[in-house]
């Protein structure tokens, strides 16, 4: 079988795998961004108890492996009465894991906003909520966006692990095709190239555009 025949025969499976990977990526990203904001802001709280909660979450998820977390959520959590189907367990584990890394980015981004901005917001009598959402976060966001670009690529790579709990993503399909054809270079190679295209020609330009738009929004360009 030539490579062209290989692609013609198996492209529907690569396609469906890619779609599952993108779904996992989008859902995990949403969860990750939410958790990162929450834990990142909690880590800046003046209350020790709130800070401690965020620290426990961040250290547990950064200190262990994504694969361990995934297996724990999928195989152990049901023993506590929380049963997630494999698709949900997949993106929840990836989102929780990468969210812990994102929390540090959020914290760093907020701390990078000059103190003058905080003081100015206080002096014009803004409430703490308004100060955060209107003054601090928009500037913090612009500062941390480049790092988020890298983190989202890590997240995309992380979604490949959901194949180990049999979510039919791109890695899983590549593995199945390899088992039935023994054409390893073709099946894994094609999947690697698809991941590369997703990361480098879709995600990276998208983040660059977003960086430009955000910078313009707050009048930095």
């Amino acid at each position: 079988m030539t490579f062209v025949e290989f692609i013609i025969t198996y492209y529907p499976r690569f396609l469906s795998g890619t779609i599952v990977t993108i779904e996992q990526f989008v859902l995990a990203s949403v969860l990750c961004i939410f958790l990162a904001l929450l834990a990142g802001l909690m880590k800046l709280s003046p209350r020790t108890s709130v800070r401690a909660c965020a620290t426990v979450y961040i250290e547990i998820f950064r200190g262990t492996s994504l694969l361990v977390q995934l297996y724990w959520i999928f195989f152990v959590l049901p023993l506590f009465g929380i049963t997630l189907d494999k698709f949900t367990a997949g993106f929840v584990a990836v989102g929780l894991n990468v969210g812990a890394y994102g929390a540090e980015l959020v914290r760093g981004g907020v701390l990078s906003v000059p103190t003058g901005q905080w003081e100015a917001a206080v002096s014009i009598n803004m409430s703490p909520g308004k100060r955060m959402s209107r003054i601090i976060l928009p500037q913090a966001l612009v500062n941390m966006l480049p790092a988020w670009g890298n983190l989202l690529i890590e997240l995309l790579k992380g979604t490949a692990l959901v194949a180990t709990i049999a979510v039919a993503d791109l890695t899983f399909e590549a593995r199945q095709i390899n088992y039935s054809t023994f054409m390893s270079a073709q099946s894994f190679g094609t999947a690697l190239i698809i991941y590369y295209v997703l990361a480098r020609f879709l995600l990276t330009p998208l983040m660059r555009r977003l960086e430009k738009i955000m910078a313009r929004q707050i009048g930095r360009e």
């Binding site: 390893s184 894994f188 190679g189 690697l192 991941y195 590369y196």
Partner: peptide, 18 residues
């Protein structure tokens, strides 16, 4: 850097025998 490690592990392990 932008492709998953787990897939690279599969690739290196299975492509050799081919």
């Amino acid at each position: 850097r932008s492709t998953p490690l787990v897939l690279q592990i599969f690739f290196i392990f299975y492509v050799g025998p081919q």
